[in-house]
Amino acid sequence: MPYAKITGLGFYVPENVVTNHDLTRYMNTSDEWIRERTGIEQRRFFTEGKDTTAKMGARAAAQALERAGITAEEIDFIVFATLSPDYFFPGSGVLLQRLLPFREIGALDVRAQCSGFIYALSVADQYIRSGMYKKILVVGSEIQSNIMELSDRGRAVAVLFGDGAGAAVVEATDEPDHRILSTHLHSDGNFAEDLFLEHPGAVLKQRLTPQMIEEGKHLPFMRGNAVFKHAITRFPEVIREALDANGYTIEDLDLLVPHQANLRIAQHVQKTLGLRDDQVFNNIQKYGNTTAASIPIALTEAWEAGKVKPGDLVCLAAFGSGFTWASALIRW
């Protein structure tokens, strides 16, 4: 049975930098308030006419392919994670497929929100282990700045999110010492409405009405306290699950790359697990929460900074809307 190995990483963020001070022009907030509650200092917003979810994914993918030393024509399959596709349908995976010189390969979209990249990575891992494909492109890309309202009404969510894309090339390998060791996926739909975007959806005959807009039903909704409470429980659980499944302990871990949801969550998880600062990588300060893109962006930056080296034990972990949560353990 072949194993799966990440051979190339890349990311792209829009050029438009939006600081906390910039947001004070639209809502009653402050740089101090946002930093204290989220750790975020700035984020990136897309440029209309230049950036799309698929185009940003293609930019990240091109970098990942170059670093893997392969071309788009060699990729066998695409797994694209996003909650913000370019169109309601088709998915952004096929839009990415037409942007680079891929063959007429399959493209699968994954809708697992903040856990999307790990879910997509798990799909790639299983396809490669089964022998069905040898080279798979996994992408997480999001444009969220245009589904938020920059106002006092939308403040609780608007200060958190940003736009960006990350990608990984996953290839078959026979090296048991350098591979994806395991992935672990979970969900609990009982809390779906604690973090969701209600309309437009397929529940009602009229998907969007003036009344819905007036009531803010077209904006993301989050019960922040509920999300925080569940996140600080599920993160440590799923990280320990990955380590236990492979016979490792926290002391064996070289680097944790958590989904960049909130710096307070990451710090709480770090304290709970007893991890040192050098064992956890955070970059939410620069990009905010980029949902499915956050882990590949952070993993790429960690690798570029020399924090991910051959032989390192690396854990990816995420928690988000659904609720969904997941982890992946990798021997780099």
Score class of each variant (00 low, 15 high):
residue 289 N to G: 06
residue 231 A to N: 07
residue 329 L to W: 01
residue 184 H to D: 09
residue 200 P to E: 06
residue 267 Q to C: 02
residue 171 E to K: 02
residue 172 A to C: 06
residue 226 A to P: 00
residue 12 Y to Q: 05
residue 253 L to R: 05
residue 112 A to L: 06
residue 179 R to G: 02
residue 99 L to A: 13
residue 171 E to N: 01
residue 152 D to Q: 10
residue 69 G to D: 08
residue 179 R to I: 10
residue 178 H to V: 04
residue 171 E to W: 01
residue 198 E to C: 05
residue 222 M to I: 14
residue 152 D to A: 10
residue 245 A to L: 15
residue 118 I to Y: 01
residue 56 M to F: 11
residue 15 E to V: 12
residue 29 T to R: 09
residue 294 S to K: 00
residue 100 L to A: 14
residue 163 D to T: 08
residue 226 A to L: 13
residue 123 V to K: 02
residue 227 V to R: 02
residue 228 F to P: 02
residue 36 E to G: 02
residue 19 T to A: 07
residue 170 V to C: 04
residue 62 A to N: 06
residue 283 N to L: 09
residue 107 A to L: 12
residue 159 V to D: 03
residue 218 H to D: 14
residue 179 R to Q: 14
residue 285 Q to A: 15
residue 29 T to M: 14
residue 313 L to K: 14
residue 196 F to R: 01
residue 139 V to P: 01
residue 73 E to N: 10
residue 106 G to Y: 05
residue 15 E to L: 11
residue 57 G to K: 06
residue 67 R to E: 14
residue 217 K to W: 08
residue 31 D to H: 15
residue 139 V to T: 05
residue 67 R to S: 09
residue 158 A to L: 07
residue 124 A to G: 11
residue 8 G to P: 00
residue 278 D to W: 01
residue 215 E to K: 15
residue 267 Q to K: 15
residue 73 E to T: 14
residue 108 L to I: 12
residue 130 S to M: 15
residue 112 A to P: 00
residue 159 V to I: 15
residue 291 T to D: 00
residue 210 P to I: 04
residue 78 I to Q: 04
residue 222 M to V: 14
